[in-house]
């Protein structure tokens, strides 16, 4: 029940956001809101393995970037030469988003298969290492702009909607986000989700029960990578731009920060965290050029002063009703 209430409140807020934005004369909040949704998807996907599964990946920005580049590269070839001589480019969102998820998933399969042989801090570092390798790969990929990034001339098309209209784009993003969170809800509350949580708490016991831990963790890792890839594909559509900056390790750090800020291992935490982090960055940067100092201080206070991030704080303030 209480989850349903939280979901309803969040959904109502996000539906109302464009209208509030218009009413207060800050309609730029619309693209910020859409980007918040994209980052909420990314953070929630990472939270699947980090919060529920206890695997701290410091390289998830790699999948974010891969998703963005899939959209960018497909659009680049749309109507032009086919990619690698046989893959036709496309500008249809119904194709680009699933392809972005599949490609991210495949990359996650390779990285996960190798990384999951380690654990703890070594896992953090090895995922970081793979992300850095991909980062350097895209930086030196001259064909698609390298470090300068890849400009996408048009937002992906969907059912003949006018994707130039910011309101339309926002609600398309919102619908995709809602679908994503419904699927994520099913995953987290399935027996698979239960096993994942069990693996976090006591891997040895789960193994003794005959659960193939490695395989479960790998599946979770791939699912997580696919989610982050979807988020990257959305961000590329919103910015009409893809660049290696999207897979920089600072971006991986940002995703982790969003999760901690909102509440690790909670369903709605990453959404709250992503929104809070981006609002903070946006308004602080608008307020003073020394915004990193204030952002740093706020993060420090949150981590030292609260347990379980903003989500935990709200939960305690409302007597456990989130």
């Amino acid at each position: 029940m209480k989850h349903l209430l939280s979901a309803a409140i969040l959904l109502a807020l996000f539906i109302a956001l464009p209208f509030i934005a218009d009413a207060v004369g800050q309609s730029s909040l619309m693209i910020l809101g859409a980007r918040m949704l994209a980052y909420a998807i990314a953070a929630a996907s990472l939270n699947l393995i980090l919060g529920y599964g206890g695997m701290v990946s410091f390289g998830h920005a790699a999948f974010f970037g891969v998703g963005a580049y899939v959209v960018g590269i497909l659009a680049y070839h749309a109507g032009g030469d086919p990619l690698l001589g046989f893959i036709p480019g496309t500008n249809q969102m119904l194709i680009t988003l699933p392809v972005a998820m599949i490609v991210s998933g495949l990359v996650a399969l390779v990285i996960g298969a190798l990384s999951l042989r380690t654990g703890g801090v070594q896992f953090i570092m090895i995922t970081l290492a793979f992300a850095q390798m991909l980062f350097f790969f895209f930086v030196s990929l001259t064909a698609y702009g390298g470090d300068d990034g890849l400009i996408i001339s048009r937002t992906n098309a969907l059912f003949g909607l006018n994707m130039r209209n910011r309101m339309t784009l926002y609600f398309v993003t919102l619908v995709i986000a809602v679908l994503f969170f419904l699927v994520l809800w099913r995953i987290v509350h399935s027996s698979f989700g239960g096993i994942l949580a069990g693996l976090r708490q006591n891997e040895r016991r789960m193994s003794a029960m005959g659960i193939p831990a490695y395989r479960y963790k790998l599946v979770a890792f791939v699912l997580s990578g696919m989610g982050v890839g979807l988020a990257g594909a959305l961000e590329a559509n919103l910015l009409r731009f893809a660049s290696p900056d999207m897979m920089h390790w600072i971006k991986s750090g940002d995703l982790i920060i969003m999760i901690i800020l909102g509440g690790v291992g909670t369903f709605f935490g990453p959404i709250i965290g992503a929104a809070a982090f981006m609002l903070l960055e946006f308004y602080l940067a608008g307020w003073t050029e020394h915004w990193p100092l204030i952002l740093g201080a706020i993060l420090l206070v949150v981590v030292l002063g609260t347990k379980g991030g903003i989500g935990g704080l709200i939960s305690r303030l409302t007597g456990g009703r989130t």
Binding site: E235, F241, S243, D245, M246, A285, G286
Partner: peptide, 13 residues
């Protein structure tokens, strides 16, 4: 902050 996404966001604002 040398982040393309932030630049775009500021431009929107």
């Amino acid at each position: 902050g040398l982040k393309p996404g932030n630049g775009r966001q500021i431009a929107e604002k």
